Computed example of a mutant assay.
Amino acid sequence: MTDHPFRFGAVAGQAPDADAWTGLARRVESLGYSTLLVPDTLQTLSPFTAAAVAATATTTLRVGTFVLSAPNRTPRAVAWETVTLHKLTGGRFELGLGAGRPDAERDAAALGVRFGTPGQRIERLSETIDQTLDAAKDVRILVAAAGTKLLRLAARKADTVALGVPPQTTEEQVAAKLDELYELAGDRFHDLELGMNLACAGAEPPEWALSRFGRTGTGILVGTPQEMADTLLRRRDHLGISYVSVNAQFLDAFAPVVERLAGT
């Protein structure tokens, strides 16, 4: 059980031009989503730049990275970018960090930086958080975590913990991860905002999405708006998950759920 209110994010990283990107940002805001979140890959828009442009086109929408691959940048560079965006957005920027998804090593090679071992990447993530908070103490930090070492780091230093699990992960498996986080976080646990990402959502998700992501699991939410809302309410009651992000391709299909639950 948690007393954190629901909030919702839309994850997007592609647009043909500035008009399309700013139009998307305004639509995300108008539909009641809290955040527009930009992934960190060389096949998508540069996350800091895209977040800045989205912020200039909106007034209340928060913007963030989901999630920045900490090994691909120096901690000081991330802190510099973050404090700049934090100031220029009026505090609307949220820094989402991870230790690098499986294909982030290829991006690191293309950028000419050393990816490092798992232990080195976690250490880089920890240092990035420390330097960022030294530069902007009140910036909100999200850490994507699944394994024990990352969960331990997130338990100590994050404001939001996003469970980095595949869409097919069952609620029982999610509960086991959160039990582990509870043990690691101790007294901090109830202060943590818990988040999960939906790969697809809606009454009738397209076949390509179901084929790609699967038909069952916590990352696939299918049903009427009320059925989806009821599922999320139950998950918040049983698991404590209150921050839900969704692939922006399902922005409109999921909007009725946002209308029902955002801020409650």
Rank of each mutant, 00 (worst) to 15 (best):
P47I: 12
F48C: 04
A50V: 03
A50M: 11
A50I: 01
A51R: 07
A51V: 11
A52E: 04
V53I: 14
A55I: 08
T56S: 00
T56A: 04
T56Q: 07
T59C: 00
T59S: 00
T60V: 09
T60F: 01
L61F: 04
R62H: 13
G64H: 02
T65W: 07
V67W: 02
V67H: 01
L68E: 05
S69P: 13
A70T: 10
A70E: 09
A70I: 04
N72H: 07
R73G: 03
T74H: 14
T74Q: 13
T74E: 09
R76Y: 13
A77Q: 13
E81M: 15
V83I: 13
V83E: 15
L85W: 07
L85H: 01
K87Q: 14
G90P: 12
G90S: 11
G90R: 10
G91H: 03
G91W: 05
G91F: 01
R92N: 00
F93M: 09
F93K: 01
F93L: 05
E94L: 08
L95Q: 02
L97C: 10
G98V: 08
G98Y: 02
A99R: 11
A99V: 15
A99K: 06
A99Y: 06
R101H: 12
D107M: 11
A108R: 07
A108G: 11
A108N: 06
G116V: 12
G116W: 06
T117E: 04
T117R: 04
P118W: 04
Q120Y: 02
Q120H: 02
I122F: 01
R124G: 02
L125M: 03
S126F: 03
E127W: 08
E127T: 14
T128H: 12
T128D: 13
T128Y: 01
L133K: 13
L133I: 09
A135I: 12
V139S: 06
I141L: 00
L142T: 14
V143N: 07
V143R: 02
A144L: 13
A145G: 08
A146K: 01
A146T: 05
T148N: 14
T148I: 04
K149I: 09
K149C: 00
L150A: 10
L150S: 12
R152G: 14
R152P: 01
A155F: 05
R156D: 08
A158C: 11
A158R: 04
A158W: 12
D159G: 11
T160M: 06
T160A: 10
V161P: 09
A162P: 07
A162K: 02
G164Y: 06
G164H: 06
G164W: 07
V165D: 01
Q168R: 06
Q168T: 14
T170W: 13
E171W: 06
E171C: 05
E172H: 14
Q173T: 06
V174G: 02
A175H: 12
A176G: 04
L178M: 09
D179R: 13
D179E: 12
D179H: 09
L181S: 00
Y182E: 08
L184Q: 10
A185T: 07
R188W: 11
F189M: 11
F189L: 11
F189G: 10
D191W: 02
L192T: 06
